[in-house]
Design a protein around this nucleic acid. Sequence first.
DNA 1: CAATTAAAATAGCCATGGCTATGCATTTCA
DNA 2: TGAAATGCATAGCCATGGCTATTTTAATTG
Lengths: 142, 142
Amino acid sequence: MTDSHSDDQSPADRFARAREAQAVALLEDYVEMIGDLIEEFGEARVADIAERMGVAQPTATKAIGRLKREGLATSRPYRGVFLTDKGADLADRVRGRHRTVVEFLVAVGVPHSVAELDAEGIEHHVSDETLAVFERFLRGRG
Amino acid sequence: MTDSHSDDQSPADRFARAREAQAVALLEDYVEMIGDLIEEFGEARVADIAERMGVAQPTATKAIGRLKREGLATSRPYRGVFLTDKGADLADRVRGRHRTVVEFLVAVGVPHSVAELDAEGIEHHVSDETLAVFERFLRGRG
DNA sequence: CAATTAAAATAGCCATGGCTATGCATTTCA
DNA sequence: TGAAATGCATAGCCATGGCTATTTTAATTG
Ligand SMILES: [Mn+2]
Ligand SMILES: [Mn+2]
Ligand SMILES: [Mn+2]
Ligand SMILES: [Mn+2]
């Protein structure tokens, strides 16, 4: 018989996957957060984006350039940054995942403030399958 | 009265923390994996490290240079890479965290292969406090 | 022991994601 | 309405983490 707990993936595959998740993590955080700013203030200015990300203003400008290149955002100087449909969709998905991860961690006993801190990184590495398990866990306890 | 569910950290603090975790993630994976190779084969050669990481050989050489600079490893050409005490300690901690995260995910219902995949990224963002919660969860169900 | 082969190092390229300093354009307001 | 203040963009630096191509060095073998 074949080994009952086979490896499924090579380490190289796992590492490649983690590297890929890392590469998109920053853009995910930007779109989610730009969505938050628009929700809160009706607009997302470069300076506010930089402040909320905790980076210098030119760093935010550069990142916004990448968002534009990826078709996730547009911007008009002195008028703010806007999410495209694609960007808004991504923001929604990312925000949902963020909330689910935080709620799940809290549900298993992690203090809320710690859960928020850890979730900011964890969220980018949780697969749809794992996310579904978290949601089921949450439902299964009302 | 003061808000009972206060924010605790600014978004900028959370993002900074996630960025920091990301910065060390790669070195953690290298030391853990080098430890595995030494365990399995008695030595960790540059070519094997590169293959297991899924990167080109010069990429591994460069990373090993960083490990050395950080005091985590030493190396002798044609003789392999070795972990310092500090490196071996880190490898042990990282491996323990990896195992705990995988076991926890499996315990809540994530398929093993998916758990392995997700854990490779998640492990670097799990705080000691959250890890302790995962361990308690695992103990509390034998 | 010389020649071959294999292993590792080096050179040099690219993109990302940080930063500071500075320039320019738009708003705002006296 | 023109000066001042503000907001944003640009230039240019650095480290990291990828890559390919090439060179060097060590190990192996005829
Ligand atoms: Mn995040
Ligand atoms: Mn988030
Ligand atoms: Mn990992
Ligand atoms: Mn790992």
